[in-house]
Nucleic acid binder design. Structure first.
Length: 211
DNA sequence: GGATCGATCGGCT
DNA sequence: GCCGATCGATCCG
């Protein structure tokens, strides 16, 4: 079962709208002939020079260059020297904004995912930005690929999730701009990441955002 | 269950 | 030199 890839009209949405709209859609990779896919259940928005937590906040550099590419481009970066995280670039070219994909519900290729991540429960497979990259074999060489054209990574569309099923909170694991309610997840999903319990010197606690 | 800590390295504040 | 959009192991209760 596959669905069409997301269309231009979707990934040109403003970053916050795109972050919400990606919920329910399917992130797919095909690596070494193995298709692995998961339903997106958690995202975060990062937006250019207005957002101190964004990689593009200070200026354009070789590292964040891909975030200034066309909307629909994947931006993959390495964090803490050993993990990867994947984003979908948003907004007009040269803006420097993206949506971080933080958690998936595994759908296809579970056996392959377990080979890449020897864990016990399906909830441990893809419930975190670095975990899902390991399970779907996403690494830095995929940075710069486009969801419309890539043969190894793309997003497939799904019906929009009603607002009543989307929870909005502050973002996780950052130390700047912690007040922005730019994290979104599917209410009731057991595949959402919880984030670190608490690390010294870091404000990681999420705050529910009332609306 | 919750808190603490180490791994590991590229890019820059 | 410092530190991060993280994870998993370990210790405590």
């Amino acid at each position: 079962m596959t669905a069409p890839r997301i269309s231009t009209s979707m990934y040109i949405l403003p970053t916050l709208a795109l972050a919400k709209r990606l919920l329910g859609c399917t992130l797919v990779t095909v690596v070494a002939g193995q298709r692995t896919a998961g339903r997106i259940v958690e995202t975060e928005a990062y937006h250019g020079d207005t957002d101190a937590a964004c990689h593009c906040y200070y200026r354009r550099t070789p590292r964040n260059e891909v975030m200034f590419a066309a909307a629909g481009t994947f931006y993959v970066y390495q964090i803490y020297g050993l993990h990867y995280c994947v984003n979908l670039v948003s907004e007009r070219e040269n803006t420097g904004a993206a949506v971080l994909i933080r958690a998936l519900e595994p759908i296809d290729g579970l056996e392959t995912m377990y080979l890449r991540r020897p864990v016990k429960r399906p909830t441990e497979l893809t419930s975190g930005p670095a975990r899902l990259c390991q399970a779907l074999a996403i690494e830095r060489s995929m940075s710069g690929e486009h969801t419309q054209h890539s043969s190894r990574i793309w997003v497939e569309t799904a019906a929009p999730i009603p607002d009543s099923e989307v929870v909005t909170t502050t973002r996780i694991g950052i130390s700047k701009a912690t007040e922005l309610p730019w994290r979104f997840y599917l209410a009731g999903s057991t595949f959402v990441s919880k984030g670190p319990a608490g690390m010294p010197g870091r404000k990681t606690k999420e705050r529910a955002f009332r609306s």
